[in-house]
């Protein structure tokens, strides 16, 4: 196994162009597990730890440009206001040690349906900045996941950053696991209200071959909020609307039975999480601040 240690982003791109099979590694929280379990034996590892640009972020007018290797700990500490959904999800990642090393870029590179970052990225709206020696392109996050642990990157591309829309309204994230820490999601759900556009976006994790948005549920809820005039009326979401939204979210999933949970439970849990997160975000939108206080 060759181990490449580029000092700069340009060197990293050149190395990736020269070794398209090279597996990039930053925090190593996923890649090293795969190697230790002998699930894969890459010919070349491309160590990005020296590329300092990847550990930085910029808060812009509309978006946060989050460097691919910014650890979850920094997201929690520094970006809770701009990216509340992602910060909530980041708190549920692994242990403190894992959160000090793991990053959103790593989650995207691995493209596991169980990655905790995916639902809030889908719900907030995000684009992946994919770069190669050929140039840069921005891939909408919902087009980025192409299959179980597969993504839309070309062999010579690396993830430079993720451009995530700054929250324009309340966001929530919920994850079911069978213990209270260090657990892979049985299923997860992210919800973002976008009052600016009077829309709602969602993200489902661990309940389909890829992370997905619950499209029909979003359309239904966006239409229902508009029809009932709820954005302006200050009223709560009628239970029938919440219930149908929850049912549509569950219907958008295509879960399987596995060691972590049954397909039936995953659908059921998504329904509960969709209903609850809608209640929490709408409460917050109405100003009934009863949001979670976290460590």
């Amino acid at each position: 196994m060759d181990f490449l240690r580029p000092a700069t982003w340009e060197e990293a791109l050149a190395a990736k162009a020269e070794h398209p099979t090279a597996v990039p590694i930053a925090g190593g929280t996923d890649v090293m597990v795969e190697i230790n379990f002998d699930h894969r034996r890459p010919d070349v590892l491309l160590d990005l730890n020296r590329v300092v640009d990847l550990y930085e972020w910029e808060v812009g007018e509309e978006t946060v440009r989050l460097g691919a290797a910014v650890p979850y700990t920094r997201v929690i500490e520094a970006l809770g206001r701009e990216l509340p959904g992602l910060a909530l999800a980041a708190r549920t990642v692994g242990s403190p040690q894992i959160r000090n090393r793991g990053s959103v870029g790593g989650n995207l590179g691995a493209a596991s349906p169980a990655g905790d970052s995916h639902p809030p990225l889908l719900a907030a709206g995000a684009e992946v900045e994919a770069v190669s020696v050929r140039g840069t392109r921005l891939i909408p996050v919902e087009e980025f996941y192409t299959g179980v642990k597969r993504n839309a990157l070309a062999p010579d591309e690396l993830i430079r950053a993720v451009h995530i829309a700054k929250a324009d309204g309340p966001q929530q994230f919920s994850k079911v696991g069978t213990r209270n820490a260090m657990v892979i999601a049985v299923c997860a759900f992210g919800l973002a209200l976008h009052p600016a556009t009077r829309t709602v976006r969602t993200g489902i994790g661990s309940a389909a071959p890829t992370p997905v948005r619950a499209g029909t549920a979003e359309e239904f809820l966006t239409a229902a909020l508009e029809e009932e005039g709820l954005w302006d009326s200050g009223r709560t979401v009628p239970p029938s609307v919440a219930r149908q939204f929850a049912d549509l979210v569950a219907a958008c999933a295509s879960p399987i039975d596995d060691v972590r949970g049954s397909a039936a439970y995953r659908r059921h849990a998504l329904r509960v999480m969709a209903r609850r997160t809608l209640g929490w975000t709408w409460d917050e939108y109405l100003g009934n601040e009863r949001s979670a206080r976290c460590a």
Partner: peptide, 24 residues
């Protein structure tokens, strides 16, 4: 339940996975 009406999810089932604020 804290005095200010907030919720400390660490004391709830699911913990920081934020699955309930007391519901159910």
């Amino acid at each position: 339940e804290s005095a200010g009406g907030g919720v400390d999810v660490r004391a709830l089932p699911g913990g920081l996975s934020n699955t309930t604020h007391g519901e159910g």
